[in-house]
Simulated scan of single mutants.
Amino acid sequence: MHIDIDKDLCIGAGQCALAAPQVFTQDDDGFSALLPGHEDDDGPLVREAARACPVGAITVTPAAR
């Protein structure tokens, strides 16, 4: 899976970091960011983090082959 955060949509609610703290964090400005090396993580917590985003700034898509 590939994880993308739309920085223009993100409001810094932090729901992603609460749902999947091993993948998401918040940057110095308080907006969502991926932890290094986790751009392609998969799992139910990643999908839950995308679902929990109040503005839909996170998308999880199948990785390109």
Rank of each mutant, 00 (worst) to 15 (best):
M1Y: 05
M1H: 10
M1R: 09
H2P: 01
H2T: 15
I5Q: 00
D6G: 03
D6A: 05
D6H: 11
K7N: 12
L9F: 05
C10P: 10
C10T: 13
A13S: 13
A13H: 12
G14L: 04
G14C: 07
Q15E: 14
L18H: 09
L18D: 09
A19E: 10
A19M: 09
A20L: 03
P21L: 08
P21N: 00
P21F: 00
Q22W: 03
V23K: 01
F24A: 10
T25A: 13
T25K: 04
Q26Y: 02
D27Q: 08
D29W: 02
G30C: 03
F31H: 13
S32V: 11
L34I: 14
L35I: 15
P36K: 00
P36D: 05
P36Y: 01
G37W: 08
G37T: 12
H38Y: 11
D40E: 12
D40C: 08
D41F: 15
D41L: 07
D42T: 15
D42N: 07
D42Q: 09
L45H: 07
L45Y: 08
L45S: 14
R47Y: 10
E48C: 05
A49V: 14
R51Q: 13
A52M: 11
A52N: 13
C53H: 09
P54Q: 01
P54S: 10
P54D: 03
A57P: 08
I58P: 07
T59Q: 12
V60Q: 06
V60C: 08
T61E: 11
A63H: 06
A63K: 13
A63E: 15
A63R: 14
A64S: 11
